[in-house]
Design a protein around this nucleic acid. Structure first.
Length: 884
RNA sequence: GGAGGCAUAGCUCAGUUGGUAGAGUACCUGCUUGACGUGCAGGUGGUCACAGGUUCAAGUCCUGUUGCCUUCACCA
């Protein structure tokens, strides 16, 4: 034993010092070592946009639990950390910061902007990684990566070029989601559809060559300027006669056809639809079917362009107002309604998205999606909890091509070069000076960068050196599990899977573990606007990382959201206090060198010792099973209950009389057991609460310098003492039942009583004989007499019946006979109803015939026990009656 | 409209091959018992949302209903 522990556990100093020690000893680092089995996790790289939130803390804690467990089990565990450049989010932050200085991107130019971005990355990248230190994460910091590292950028180029050559990446004019605020295209997955109330305006166009009108409704009147058709359903009787005729769009006097397309629903709106192929995805499809012209009326900032005639230069919403006014003047406005509709909104800046046709780069998804679906179907990819698998398959089955070009500067620049002379596009890794077709030097690189998820899709292998064939890649890939929040299933998880299948020919991880969101005490999402966010660093400061980790993990099952509130932190902090004091208690009792040399293999163990040894052995197995099936909440619950309930409240109390008696021949057996079990309990707890367990472990163990590299307790059949477990459970029942009796008779705790145990047989008599000392102290007895008959017991003794014995307390005249009768009658009633229930079951032929044998036998055994107890209670009652 | 989740003790939640419901917290009663009052002992409290079904047996499986939530798609 190295040192005494302070009276109170000081998490601040312990946590900081311990983490420094782990770092300086390089415990987290894993080298390629073919003699050991690897266990690899790559971290979901947090964005460098700011600080970590409590959700990151949950995510990291789960990974750390897995990594630490496997490391202790002897795997070569490697957790690769890193950060993501988060192109659009980071660029927005920098632009904001610049705006405060009154500078814009255009003012300073691309190179200067990138310089600022790298400086930002340096600053915030550091802060974020430091926060992982605070949490206790055992990441291999030597392997830290960043999505715009040289190596990872090379991987991005490699993939782009390979995909381009294969025809999986193409450039095309397609309708994209355009953010007029960020002035970039964004992918479908980045669009939030927010419900809101909006106008629904009805207008009419005059039908050429008639004096009739055709009316329609729209939520975006300004797009009328880009209309190139009116569509009706081919089966719609009221419009059939108009199909083939034309109408003239007022204001711009464009003549457009009335076409028939089954896309139009007859009973929605007026049954006629304006078709605007340049600004609506459905209309674009209709337009393609009917070869309609595409007229783009919008500028990048959401204002209207020269195609909008008189409205050129107006913002989209101003134009909308003016157009409604104009139509009203012309008598072509019909009516307006208010409707609920969902509006496509950019999730990063909440600006309303404008769909518009742009020349962009896309990844063709049809060929990539198939293999990603197959690996889920054939269970090569296992998703936990299973229900997210449905979301995964549904998305892949309905996937559209992925728009990957972004009109941003911060990110991987698209390696495409355009020839001004022959228009040829050269795609190449290295900077291109000559057009590969016409050798012209009049060539320019694409200004755009790639979607940030393009690089993170490669993360599990690009971080290990791909496209080079490194030893690391060969050894650590594929990783073992991906742990992430379920909101990035589409953005990231799916894309990693198909990228890895394409380039590594295997899944990047066999398991995906999704966790839920952390909510506040009222179940609300944490958000900046509500101000209900919780800063993990504050919690660590006040309660310690261990208490935070425990709070994040306990009482939660995979994939479910979790409420986070003060009371839970308090409860878990109390647990820290509990184990700290258990450790102190233990250390206090080791007094001599001989004490410290005590070892369970050399000592003469009692039933109590074997009981707790057997229990920790079993719990170790159960905990591992839970962890391996990702039931982390259940795993930690088992350790918590074992330590608090079985080890502290029972074992320590049982063993005290032996510890305090220097001449007790089994004192050292108790010490050895106390230590062995506690050390193993600390090991089981270590993945969840790394700091306090390290501090305690190193205080107890002289020959090991850290718990994190100590050997995990694997289940050992030779420590499985089932008989002793049963024995001690029986004694515990006896103690509990005496305590109940004492309390019901208002016997003060300090008052010691004599207890006589009447055992059913020799075995039980011996058990009580052997357990006398601690049974007496737990039951508050001054003396315990064990016998197998009723000799010397007065009829007025208070009795309590357990399975296998009757316990008597000779209170004499102190006891109120009536009250005692009531107590026994109640007990009798309870037993009778139990017996009745079991009898009913056993008389049921179906039960006997169909239930498992073990279940039937269990019930039979219970019945015998209960009947025996009932007989005894009836005997006690009749004696009391005789006294009356 | 499609898909999914949740509904269990006052509150927050566990409960993985179906076999008589658990924890934390709150509340009540005792207790400074030589680790811990951030503690110990004992206790109150649940027809497991509702209605059916399968089964010898259902909180657990199936169907439907209601309420809350999430997500995808659409919304001229």
């Amino acid at each position: 034993m190295k040192k005494e522990l302070e009276k109170n556990y000081n998490h601040q100093s312990v946590e900081n010092q311990t983490y420094e020690k782990w770092l300086s000893k390089n415990y987290f680092h894993a080298e390629v070592d073919k003699s050991k089995k690897p266990y690899t996790i790559v971290i979901p790289p947090p964005n460098i946009t700011g600080q970590l939130h409590i959700g990151h803390a949950l995510n990291a804690t789960m990974q750390d639990i897995l990594i630490r467990t496997k490391r202790m089990q002897g795997y070569n565990a490697m957790w690769l950390p890193g950060t993501d450049h988060a192109s659009i989010s980071t660029e927005m932050k920098i632009v904001q910061a610049m705006a405060e200085e009154g500078v814009t991107k255009a003012d300073i130019g691309r190179d200067a902007f990138l310089e600022r971005a790298w400086a930002w990355r340096e600053e915030y990248g550091r802060i974020i990684l430091k926060q992982f230190h605070k949490l206790g994460c055992s990441c291999d910091w030597e392997r830290e990566r960043f999505t715009m590292d040289e190596g990872l950028s090379a991987a991005v180029l490699e993939v782009f070029i390979r995909m381009y050559k294969k025809g999986y990446i193409y450039r095309g004019e397609k309708l994209v989601n355009w953010c007029p605020n960020c002035k970039t295209s964004i992918s479908d997955a980045e669009v939030d559809h927010l419900e809101s109330q909006g106008g629904f305006w009805y207008f009419k166009y005059p039908i050429d060559g008639t004096d009739e009108f055709i009316s329609f409704a729209t939520t975006r009147p300004e797009t009328m300027l880009a209309d190139t058709a009116i569509a009706v359903n081919p089966d719609d009787e009221k419009y059939k006669k108009y199909i083939g005729k034309t109408v003239t769009v007022p204001i711009i006097n464009r003549v457009i056809p009335i076409i028939a397309d089954s896309y139009v629903e007859q009973d929605f709106g007026t049954g006629a639809v304006k078709i605007t192929p340049a600004h609506d995805p459905n209309d674009a499809d209709v337009g393609a079917r009917h070869n309609l012209p595409i007229i783009n009326i919008m500028n990048d900032d959401g204002s209207l362009n020269e195609n909008a005639g008189d409205y050129c230069g107006l913002d989209r919403y101003d134009a909308r107002k003016r157009i409604i006014e104009e139509f009203t003047k012309l008598g072509l406005f019909v009516k307006s309604e208010t409707v609920n509709n969902s509006v496509g909104t950019h999730e990063k800046c909440n600006t309303v998205i404008e769909p518009l046709v742009k020349l962009q780069w896309f990844v063709k998804m049809s060929e990539l999606a198939g293999p990603a679906l197959d690996v889920y179907k054939d269970k090569t990819l296992n998703i936990v909890p299973e229900r997210f698998g449905k979301i995964y398959t549904h998305w892949l089955e309905n996937i559209k091509d992925w728009c990957i070009s972004r009109q941003l500067w911060w990110g991987h620049r698209i390696p495409a070069y355009y020839c001004a002379d022959c228009n040829h596009v050269t795609v190449a890794k290295d900077k291109v000076e000559l057009c590969e077709k016409c050798q012209s030097k009049n060539i320019k690189q694409d200004e755009d960068t790639l979607d940030t998820w393009f690089s993170s899709a490669l993360w599990p292998f690009s971080t290990l050196g791909w496209p080079d064939k490194t030893d690391e890649l060969d050894y650590f890939f594929p990783t073992n599990v991906l742990v992430t929040a379920h909101d990035i299933l589409f953005f990231w998880v799916v894309r990693m899977v198909f990228s890895s299948l394409e380039y590594m020919d295997e899944v990047p991880f066999p398991d995906v573990l999704f966790h839920g969101l952390i909510r506040d005490s009222q179940g609300r999402k944490m958000s900046k606007s509500l101000g209900n966010g919780i800063d993990p660093l504050d919690v660590i400061e006040n309660f310690g990382a261990d208490a935070l980790r425990l709070t994040l993990i306990s009482g939660n099952s995979p994939g479910n959201d979790l409420r986070f509130y003060q009371e839970r932190l308090d409860a878990n902090r109390n647990f820290l206090n509990k184990i700290w004091n258990a450790a102190r208690f233990m250390l206090m009792n080791f007094k001599t060198e001989e004490d410290e040399a005590a070892d369970i293999s050399k000592e003469n163990l009692t039933d109590v010792d074997k009981w707790i040894i057997s229990r920790v052995n079993t719990v170790a197995k159960e905990v591992l099973n839970c962890i391996d099936s990702y039931e982390l909440g259940m795993a930690v619950q088992k350790v918590y209950d074992f330590i608090w309930d079985e080890y502290c409240d029972w074992y320590i109390e049982m063993v005290k009389p032996r510890l305090y008696n220097e001449s007790d021949s089994t004192r050292r057996a108790a010490l050895a057991t106390l230590k062995m079990v506690f050390i193993n309990a600390m090991k089981l707890l270590h993945p969840f609460m790394p700091f306090i367990t390290e501090e305690i472990f190193t205080s107890i163990q002289d020959d090991e310098e850290t718990i994190m590299l100590s050997k995990w307790h694997e289940f050992d059949e030779s420590l499985n003492f089932k008989k002793e477990e049963q024995n001690i459970e029986l004694i515990k029942d006896a103690v509990k039942s005496i305590r109940q009796v004492r309390l019901s008779l208002n016997v003060p705790p300090a008052k010691k009583v004599n207890i006589t145990v009447v055992a059913d047989n020799d075995q039980i008599a011996k058990l009580f004989e052997d357990s006398k000392a601690f049974f007496a102290s737990l039951a508050g007895a001054s003396d315990v007499l064990v016998q197998q008959d009723r000799n010397g017991i007065n009829d007025d003794a208070v009795s309590t019946v357990i399975k296998g014995a009757t316990l008597y307390i000779p209170f004499g005249e102190l006891v109120d006979v009536e009250k005692e009768m009531d107590r026994l009658e109640k007990e009798k009633e309870r037993l009778s109803s139990e017996i009745e229930r079991i009898n009913k079951k056993l008389l049921n032929e179906g039960f006997i015939a169909k239930a498992k044998e073990s279940v039937v036998n269990g019930e039979k055994e219970k019945l015998v026990g209960y009947e025996e107890m009932l007989r005894k209670i009836e005997g006690e009652i009749s004696k009391l009656k005789g006294m009356k």
